[in-house]
Amino acid sequence: MINWLNKIMPNVISMGWGGDYGWWQSIYQTLFMTLFSALIGGLIGLIFAIILVLTDNDGILPNRPVFWLADKIVSVFRAVPFIILLFVISPFTHLLIGTTLGATAALVPLSLSVAPFYARQIQVVLKAVDPGKIEASQALGANNWDLLIIYMKESLPEMIRVSTVTLISLIGLTAMAGAIGSGGLGNTVVTFGQQSKYDVVWVGTILLLLLIFGIQAIGDWWAKHSNHAV
């Protein structure tokens, strides 16, 4: 068995499971980068989305300057391609983490890139909440905090759906972060691919696809089961 595997994918086997350059380290780094940049970037994105919806003209706290500023910040960060952002913010990353290499350092550009993407998605989702529901809640004497909860609760299935989309595009970004030596499956695939070690490229790609399909399946299931509107 081992002989046969050694024959068809020698480089995959020689990489090994454990160790600093093994498969587990590679998978772990991808999961680490995805999870933590999703949490940090997701939170920043969510806050921006809420600010954008509440301070918009037809929002519950209309505020032209605040909306304008938040909208421009999101637009600018959304416009910079990720591969460029990696280099542009590297001094900031160095200041924050002490290095620009490795998975932890990659969290900075990943979070800053996913935040505006997520902010726009959540903005669209929250804006789709029927204004009649907000008006009815106001008529019942709801305060702004209550209204924010209504916005989130009524759009929960859609929020789960766009979070899934965001998480999947984030996995794509972690692969690109391999370019600055962040580690992870993307980094492994790129490094070995440049050395024409295609067995590693295939196995790495399949692992990434499994991760993406897994997240998609869980996200779809959860969005569907949390939706009581149909």
Binding site: D130, G132, K133, E135, A136, S137, A139, L140, I150, K153, E154, L156, P157, S226, N227, H228, A229
Partner: peptide, 14 residues
Amino acid sequence: IGMIFQHFNLLDQS
């Protein structure tokens, strides 16, 4: 002051 609407405006996820 209670209010009711043409399209009910209930919370669908509640």
